[in-house]
Design a protein around this nucleic acid. Sequence first.
DNA 1: GCGACAG
DNA 2: ATCTTGTCGC
Length: 227
Amino acid sequence: MTVPYRPPADVAEARRVQEELRSRVELAGPGPSAPTAVAGLDVAYAESGDRLAAAVTVLDAVGLDVVDEAVHVGRPAFPYVPGLFAFREMPALLAALDKLTVRPDLLVCDGHGVAHPRRFGLACHLGVVTGLPAIGVGKTPLVGSWEQPGPRRGDWAELRDGDEVVGRVLRTRDGTRPVFVSVGHRIGLDEAVERVLALTPRYRLPETTRTADRLCRRALVVGGDPV
DNA sequence: GCGACAG
DNA sequence: ATCTTGTCGC
């Protein structure tokens, strides 16, 4: 899946691109079809901050075993600006996705989807650009307010920004901090939460992001960096 | 005006 | 994201 993508030259251009792509987000799912190959995406940075490794792991939706994986080592494509975070990692993530042999049915991103100031976080960006259904799973909030969800796995609370429900604060494990789930592209919030719970049988974060996290960190070490 | 701010 | 020691708990 080769997808054309050019990083913006500056903040102004990034915001224009973001606004243009935002109109293409689909907040509902395509249908009842259950995903079989779920991809996890994550990026690790070198201490210097001038090098990064983007990883994608594809897991069987049922057994949660890794059926394919790919990494791409490169440089950040944009400075870190809250709200424009996606531009930083998009090129490397797309390059990694390009190397996959197995085409995923769903992308699980470490970052938010529509739970974003302009409703277009990394998960939306990746979903729209690739055309694949995508879910955003953030570890910390970016926008919105919420009531503390119950203490048990599966308990949740609405994440709302003003009058809009932009996601769900979901407890994936008893007694641990919740994660922030939001729609990225072509999937509904209920199904997104359902998928996240299916991917967290044991740990707080989805197995997809855990495997991708280990992969990109390893790639960064093998590539030679830790002083 | 001040503070907050995914990774 | 990354830098960091010990510590509490299963």
